[in-house]
Amino acid sequence: MTTTTAHAFDTAISLTDNGIGHHSAQTTPEFANMVGPFGGVTAAAIVRAIEQHPDRIGEPVALTVNYLAAVTDGDFDIAVRPVRTNRTNQHWTAEVTQEHGPTTTATAVFGLRRDAWSDTEATMPDAPDPESVAHTTLPGPVPWMRNYDMHYVAGGVPTEPAESASSTTTLWVRQRPARALDFAALSALADVFYPRVFLRRGRMLPAGTVSLTTYFHVDGTELAAQGTDYVLATAQAQRFARGYFDQAAQIWGRDGTLLATSHQIVYYKD
């Protein structure tokens, strides 16, 4: 007899259908962050909810998630609604709620991709193969990070109180245990970076993502071709000012395919 255990990520984004566009879910301790669950797993659950909607067309093109308040441990609800469907794209709204009110809102664009001229102007960062870079055991009680196999090429988590002139972090990363990459997992990877202010200041500070936008640059076939391999993730802030900083990130396949880019604004206290 063979017993199959669900991957922790799939358990974390598992949804119960409560009617068209309405789902219930539950936080899991494996994806807990310092306050509430890992924001990337909340984004992934929203993507999964839209994917399961019977009126959905196409695949993710863009996702913006606004984090209003921390999701508390326990049950939460996700409601998704198609606002408008055009010939090649479809616009969605989503809301995550708990007993105390809404915690997360989102908008998404799904679309049908067609053959067209294509080019990539961005350049994949130079990096040694992940197998030649030591796995990083991350300090501190942040459970969600244990679900990722991280090999930092540059800008690793500060372990000594020393400021850095650069906010750039680059790492090879994949889920642990390895899991085939899909759009939900890619949505979570867009938020896999620790706050840039930690690196610049050389220490942990109160910080949290306020809004995260991810752009998906591949279709399902291209994404499936990545299999369970590592992806190269790189992120950099552009300005820290009056308690907020931005972050621009890229997610690359080992084969040089730009899978996704993201931008987020983060609150911090210093």
Results as ranks from 00 to 15, higher is better:
residue 225 A to C: 08
residue 247 Q to Y: 00
residue 236 Q to S: 15
residue 130 P to D: 10
residue 54 P to G: 07
residue 109 V to C: 10
residue 238 Q to L: 15
residue 235 A to F: 02
residue 72 T to N: 06
residue 126 D to R: 02
residue 184 A to M: 06
residue 152 Y to C: 11
residue 170 T to E: 08
residue 187 S to I: 05
residue 264 Q to F: 01
residue 9 F to S: 11
residue 41 V to Q: 01
residue 38 F to L: 02
residue 110 F to H: 13
residue 88 T to A: 12
residue 80 V to Y: 00
residue 155 G to K: 04
residue 256 G to N: 07
residue 70 A to M: 05
residue 138 L to S: 13
residue 185 A to V: 11
residue 168 T to A: 14
residue 106 A to R: 01
residue 127 A to I: 08
residue 24 S to A: 13
residue 222 E to C: 05
residue 202 G to T: 09
residue 63 L to N: 09
residue 63 L to T: 12
residue 12 A to W: 00
residue 42 T to C: 14
residue 106 A to Q: 01
residue 262 S to I: 11
residue 269 K to F: 09
residue 251 I to Q: 02
residue 183 F to L: 05
residue 197 V to R: 03
residue 112 L to Q: 11
residue 134 A to Y: 07
residue 162 A to M: 04
residue 255 D to H: 02
residue 9 F to K: 04
residue 192 V to A: 14
residue 42 T to A: 15
residue 193 F to E: 08
residue 107 T to A: 10
residue 239 R to H: 07
residue 32 A to W: 00
residue 3 T to E: 10
residue 208 G to Y: 08
residue 3 T to I: 10
residue 5 T to D: 07
residue 62 A to T: 15
residue 104 T to G: 08
residue 67 Y to V: 15
residue 93 T to V: 13
residue 56 R to V: 15
residue 135 H to L: 14
residue 266 V to T: 12
residue 270 D to V: 15
residue 74 G to W: 00
residue 27 T to S: 15
residue 183 F to K: 01
residue 24 S to W: 00
residue 9 F to H: 04
residue 174 R to A: 12
residue 47 V to Q: 09
residue 222 E to D: 12
residue 31 F to P: 04
residue 15 L to A: 07
residue 223 L to I: 06
residue 112 L to M: 10
residue 68 L to N: 04
residue 67 Y to R: 10
residue 15 L to I: 01
residue 83 V to W: 00
residue 147 N to M: 14
residue 260 A to H: 03
residue 112 L to A: 12
residue 67 Y to K: 09
residue 133 V to P: 04
residue 84 R to P: 08
residue 7 H to R: 04
residue 133 V to C: 06
residue 208 G to K: 05
residue 121 E to I: 13
residue 229 D to E: 14
